[in-house]
Design a protein around this nucleic acid. Sequence first.
DNA 1: CGCACCGGGTTCTGCCATCTGC
DNA 2: GCAGATGGCAGAACCCGGTGCG
Length: 354
Amino acid sequence: MLCTGPTKTIELKPPGNTENESLLENLNLMGVDVKKARQRQPGVFRKAFTNEQGLAQFLQGKGASRRVIASIVSRYPRAITRSIEHLEQRWDLWRNIFMTDAEIVTILDRSPESFFRSSDNGNLEKNIDFLTSMGLNTKDLHRLLTTAPRTFSNSLELNRQMVEFLEDICAELGGTNPEQFVKAVITRNLYILIRSTKRVKTNIDILRSSLKLSDAELLALLQGPVAEILDLSNEYLKNNFNSLQKKMVSLGCRRAHIKNLIISYPMVLYIGPSTLSLKLDCLLKGGITMKQIVEKPKVLDYSTENITGRLEELKRVGYDFQKNGINILDSSRKRHVERRNHHSLLVWHGRRLT
DNA sequence: CGCACCGGGTTCTGCCATCTGC
DNA sequence: GCAGATGGCAGAACCCGGTGCG
């Protein structure tokens, strides 16, 4: 069976208060940043028995480099208290979702805590079952574990609370398919399950009140792109909303336009006040109107640097935004260059003919 | 072909606070 | 009182291209 209880307990014996000499030696040999590790989890260093060599061998067998192993132990020392059986079991559970060991090693290098923080493999297995039962398929789970690995170390109870909270929201807003709603929100925002219900709830309230949305409107929006901003910190969302509103009012926009912008392009609230201000100014200076931006907010997706460069190039070839619109700014580099070249060609022919 | 619409990829971890069980 | 387990927080965008329509 894959699932037995927590890790086999490892003997706790602090002989005086001295640290385990061979442990220190092993860690140094492994290239671990002992100072950092000790600062992080001092308890680990007072244990009589640890499994650093077993862990190292195990990870090496999975293709992890010496450097990666050292980095993992430096950042999450408790990893060395896990037994081989525990590690194998947990690895196998992750392998239900990942195709290769290499993928897992990448995640461990990125976030060792996600893999090692919990010793409860049973809980991990239950989480996988739970998420599957919600209608998330293998591909969804793969994206989820890759993007927000901590989700799988949450207690089943915590994940269940968030799911129930979202189902309740759906029902409150008059939705008829809570399961589908939750699935939509989670696949739209993979970080939801590692946020507190308090944070998500507050953000929903902020959006509802600041945009004066009806239940039906809110219900529809939450399943769309708005889901992407639900995990922002509450203060950040509020600040960004306020500064966006202030900026747009100062540019002569009406409230309705601000609402439209946010509804059609919620990610605008993800952009910090200074970046956003810079970006808008840059567009306006380039001869684009606020009205055009509100109608085609996706231009804001691109970096100020990128936009600046495009504006310069387009100015050089005499592109007229009032006549031709701003679609040309809202496209991938490849498409943009194609279209710009095409446009120059047309202009050139036009001149020759007149 | 030009365009609108849409969704996906990237990386979002590392620290502190609190509880729980021994 | 200790260490382990778990919850929660702050931080802060940009880019690409498939598909399908007219």
